[in-house]
Nucleic acid binder design. Structure first.
Lengths: 340, 340
DNA sequence: CTGAAAGCGCTAACAT
DNA sequence: ATGTTAGCGCTTTCAG
């Protein structure tokens, strides 16, 4: 801080080092041609005055930032925070910083943060959209800011995405329950406004159909991707007609809620009801957890999304990418009813 | 996007509306004096061209942003994400947006993000510092960007903080275990580089001393605030000399890890060992959790920190604030050994 | 190799 | 009430 109580500018550094602002800029920024002794003088002045370049001014001029934005739909969900960490790691390797915002599955909030990202001119945005059709990324794309969605896709915009094959993953999980001898398999679906909500449901239906089972709509409940939602949905299923003997829950937090409901109802897992969840929940249940889950490759998800984004940021021309990663079914005791 | 493929600027809008850039700015920004018909023309042009003000240019000029930064030391920890959500809510009410960064208890990362916050010229920063003495916030304060720490304090800088009384909270928790008849009370401390790490340990010691008990250093282990850290620390305590019959763990994730270790060792809670944790862990253990904990008022923590920050952002002059909130001991079955 | 000058997009003074 | 001018702090031509 100088005597004026304001930030030190490049001109003050220039003056202190008896050079022009342009030279200071050159000394600081590239490996450009500045005489060593001049450079040293500049660096010394920078250090003494505590000069820090004003990022806004710089990127106003250069039309570039080294900051990526990440917009997640629920920051309290460890699946998303895990992806965020991997985005961060990957971005950092490329010299980018990451700022994060939480949209909370709320279209208004999401819209606001998309605007913020546009106004702040981030280099690119990684996004788990709150809605398949109502999320508007054009605010960004119109300004030439690339967007990559992860976990979920947009149907309304032609943007890159990195997801798993949700239909296939849900089908595999459901077929597993069928194979374990479950006769009435319940399903707790996610928000209908998201591709994960729809695709996982489609996979569940497909598996039943393929197994020659009818789809009983009373065995399908919707949740809001939160724990309470899973709890409420599970209770609904338990009290609707004959209780299920198998349950597939399509997201991590809802799985915990469903387990709460099962425990409350005095049901044993897997004896009374076999359970398959989504996403590893070691953060909640511990390493010794015996929950069968569809495991998503969170680290790879974030990594691929970021790398893809960075290619776009680098103005690389390539067709719209839809990267689909493999999810794997991790079978543990919660779903094991037959020796296999 | 205009024909040039770049963002629409205020000049283009001005041209389209046959007014000057200044008028566009006035029409958009304040309730300033612009003739209604002119304003309508401008707004129409804005809509047609899809104009969005360039936030960087604007705040370069106005020296103000409506964005706050939040730097948390572990984004995978629900305690911090809960506070973040409350910061967000509070900021939003005041018209501010919040961007978030994860420092991961890593001084390098933290330093980098403090620089980013400075360069991006956020209006203010809410921070849970990775280190009591090594976290350098002067990057921000020198530029006149106010900082409020939460959860932890800095000893090196005179900045506002919002915390609980950690010494008192830990003392109360420990005394509770004493009152339950525990003879050998173990303690899992946090990082020694944080005020929470030190203060909670101090509270534990104080409680024992006050109860006329010697402090057995073999009953104190350190963890890294993560689940594995709690697990490792608990194992260490279980295998060092006579096992404890009471355990106080000074953070939420470590509590889960400690419970893992206890279960693995076949110890029953509370019969073999009474347990008190820190921070409600319903996100992990469910509403029906029987864990006794020190409950922090997360929402209030974020709210107060944000309000304080906003007062500083508004250039309000006030002495350095150290707001201390009340934490409460929530007694549940995990620590109950005596009818009370 | 260095300096002078222009300008990124916006808003605040100053005119009118 | 509106336009003109200047300048936020920086980088990047263009000269020299």
């Amino acid at each position: 801080m100088n005597s004026r109580g304001t930030a030190v500018t490049i001109r003050e550094v220039a003056q202190a080092a008896s050079v022009s602002p342009a030279t200071v800029s050159r000394a600081l920024n590239g490996p450009s041609a500045v005489r060593p002794d001049v450079r040293d003088r500049v660096l010394k002045a920078v250090a003494e005055l505590g000069y820090r370049p004003n990022g806004r001014a710089r990127s106003l001029r250069t039309r570039a930032t080294m900051v990526l934005g990440v917009l997640v739909s629920d920051i309290m969900n460890p699946f998303f925070t895990a992806v965020v960490r991997s985005v961060e790691d990957t971005a950092q390797e490329a010299g980018y910083s990451v700022i994060l915002a939480n949209t909370d599955e709320d279209l208004q909030k999401e819209a606001r943060y998309l605007e913020v990202a546009a106004a702040e001119q981030v280099a690119g945005v990684v996004l788990s959209p709150a809605s398949t059709s109502q999320t508007r990324v054009d605010v960004l794309t119109e300004r030439g800011i690339p967007v990559v969605t992860f976990d979920r896709r947009l149907r309304t915009a032609e943007v890159d995405s990195v997801t798993i094959d949700n239909v296939q993953a849900a089908r595999e999980a459901t077929l597993h329950l069928v194979a374990q001898g479950c006769r009435r398999i319940g399903f707790i679906a996610g928000l209908a406004t998201t591709t994960t909500g729809e695709d996982r449901l489609a996979g569940y239906r497909a598996a039943l159909t393929r197994s020659g089972r009818p789809v009983d709509e009373r065995l399908i409940a919707r949740g809001n991707y939160r724990r309470e939602g899973g709890y409420a949905a599970a209770r609904q299923l338990l009290h609707a007609g004959r209780a299920p003997d198998g349950l597939f829950v399509s997201n991590n937090l809802m799985t915990l809620g469903a387990l709460d409901a099962l425990a409350e109802a005095g049901l044993r897992v897997p004896e009374d009801i076999a359970v398959v969840g989504f996403d590893d929940a070691t953060w909640a249940l511990g390493q010794r957890s015996q929950l069968t889950v569809v495991s998503q490759p969170t680290y790879e998800l974030g990594q691929q999304a970021t790398n893809l984004l960075l290619r776009r940021v680098g103005r690389e021309e390539l067709p719209v990418q839809r990267i689909v990663l493999r999810a794997t079914l991790t079978v543990r005791a919660s779903s094991r009813r037959l020796a296999s």
